[in-house]
């Protein structure tokens, strides 16, 4: 861990950030991706969101390739990721090799073991007991919001308040029982990343 680098944006010089979010279907992978995209859009940035589809999601895995840029986005494919947000072991095994040296790796340590993270060449490996944290909040479904909060803090890709606004907007048609735990989880994720 290199706390002194936490606030530095992981974006490359042309202000482009390429990331992969991956986990089991139902873990909220696509929601993380969508919230990051809508937040970045609200900040005037360009985005692409490319989900896995069809046979690729059989077996219950889901992933989404996201690019956030201040300029034109050419390929929406993320071959080399600036960041990975990984929610399950299968996805860790599959995608960790696609992390750029110096990239950011955010792991749901409640479900993912990565013994030797040094091989990844990551600038920072953030291990978050996201599912356990979500369970303590009272709803394991908000695991993704914990991950999102932590990623936003660690990457600085978008402003926390903007992302929180997007999160509230996303769940705006649902009852408080749905919105509130997600907000709590997001904030807890931010705190966990700040403490790391």
């Amino acid at each position: 861990m290199q706390p002194n680098e936490q606030a530095a944006p992981a974006a490359t010089t042309d202000q482009e950030h390429r990331l992969i979010i991956a986990g089991f279907g139902g873990q909220g992978v696509l929601t993380i991706a969508k919230l990051l995209c809508t937040t970045a859009m609200s900040e005037g940035k360009n985005v692409t969101y490319l989900p896995s589809y069809g046979a690729e999601v059989r077996g219950g895995t889901a992933n989404c390739q996201v690019v956030v840029s201040s300029g034109v986005i050419y390929s929406p494919l993320v071959e080399q990721a600036d960041s990975l947000i990984i929610l399950n072991q299968l996805s860790c095994d599959r995608f960790v090799v696609r992390l750029k040296p110096g990239g950011l790796l955010v792991l749901n340590s409640s479900a993912v073991a990565l013994d030797d993270a040094s091989q990844t060449g990551a600038r920072q490996v953030l291990r978050l007991p996201a599912a356990d944290t979500a369970a303590r909040i009272g709803n394991v479904k908000v695991t993704n919001s914990v991950m999102l909060g932590a990623f936003v803090r660690a990457s600085g890709l978008v402003a926390e308040e903007d992302c929180l606004a997007a999160l509230r907007e996303h769940w705006s048609r649902r009852r408080a029982e749905v919105i509130d735990p997600n907000v709590t989880a997001f904030r807890r994720g931010v705190e966990l990343a700040a403490e790391a």
């Binding site: 969508k34 995209c37 859009m41 360009n46 985005v47 692409t48 969101y49 490319l50 989900p51 589809y53 986005i73 929406p76 494919l77």
Partner: peptide, 10 residues
């Protein structure tokens, strides 16, 4: 194609 169809953009 599949990429243009599946991809989201603003």
């Amino acid at each position: 194609d599949g990429m243009i169809g599946q991809m989201m953009e603003p």
